[in-house]
Design a protein around this nucleic acid. Structure first.
Lengths: 153, 153
DNA sequence: TTGCTCCTCACGTCACGTGAGGTGGC
DNA sequence: TTGCTCCTCACGTCACGTGAGGTGGC
């Protein structure tokens, strides 16, 4: 069924542009083991990516950007995303229900952890926004105190 | 009046520990021109920081951390914080009301810009949190579909 | 065949980390 | 005097940026 749809593949430049990064970054992530490299790619031949590969890389980039992680921390935190294949890819055709259940069960706590970290970040950002708002208020107060409106007094 | 309170000064190690960074970072920021260095410091003598210096550095660190700026972008965005001296320091004794008004007026749009950037970041983070929540929901749905509860059927 | 994008080195850069060797205040 | 923290080089590292020189598919 899903077999009938041949997957479109994307070149590294297309992926990079779509994600707003450079090809160098993608190659570097591969070098660091963050991207699973197809074992059959001949040295020197073009890299090709599926939509699932792109989605995974997109997740990695968001985690790194919003949480400010090193690539090492990212590697740990993202092992889940391996199992995120479950959402696409060859998941449909090559896995038994039992395997799927096991994969999802092991992936859930990891996504929960990511969500917790993001939520902690949200709280800290909200604090910072409040600090800036307070500062603006104080500045306006000071202005009012220092330059009383003409016509008053 | 404010003269009567001699300001406590802090050494670089104290400042670093308080802000959760290293002394190297502080020296590097000074080198890059992000921190105003007192012109009278003899080469080789200890760096000393006031509470106002520490507050300014704290602001810089938050802007960098939450917005993911380069030090060059940070330099631009933070020129305001120079004028933030207005909140402490020698502001009380060496400035006329007219000067204060001018300083505050020029600083306000800059703080507003910082706040806008932080709010934009908050929206993107909220989107990301939502993506993770959706993903978790889908995973739970899939589990229910794949492993129907015993006793049913 | 001509462009274009891709490839693999490999050196450069930014924002620090990490000693080496030495000086200065409680 | 002994520790402790500070100082100034200066080289190392992480996460890429940026060519150099060459190969491969429309």
């Amino acid at each position: 069924m899903a077999n009938a749809v041949p997957q479109r593949q994307y070149k590294i430049g297309e992926v990079a542009e779509h994600l707003g990064i450079t090809a160098r970054t993608i190659r570097y992530y591969e070098e660091r083991g963050l991207l699973d490299v197809p074992s059959d790619r001949a040295k020197g031949s073009h890299r090709l990516y599926t939509e699932a590969d792109i989605a995974r890389l997109h997740d990695l980039l968001q985690l790194r950007e919003f949480l400010g992680l090193t690539l090492e921390e990212l590697t740990e935190l993202a092992e889940v995303t391996q199992a995120q294949q479950c959402l696409q890819d060859r998941w449909d055709t090559t896995t038994t229900d039992e395997q799927r259940v096991r994969i999802i069960r092991s992936a859930i706590p990891n996504v929960q952890r990511q969500l917790q970290l993001v939520q902690a970040r949200q709280r800290r950002l909200a604090d910072f926004a409040q600090q800036l708002t307070d500062k603006l208020d104080r500045m306006h107060d000071n202005l009012r105190r220092l330059s009383p409106r003409r016509g008053r007094r």
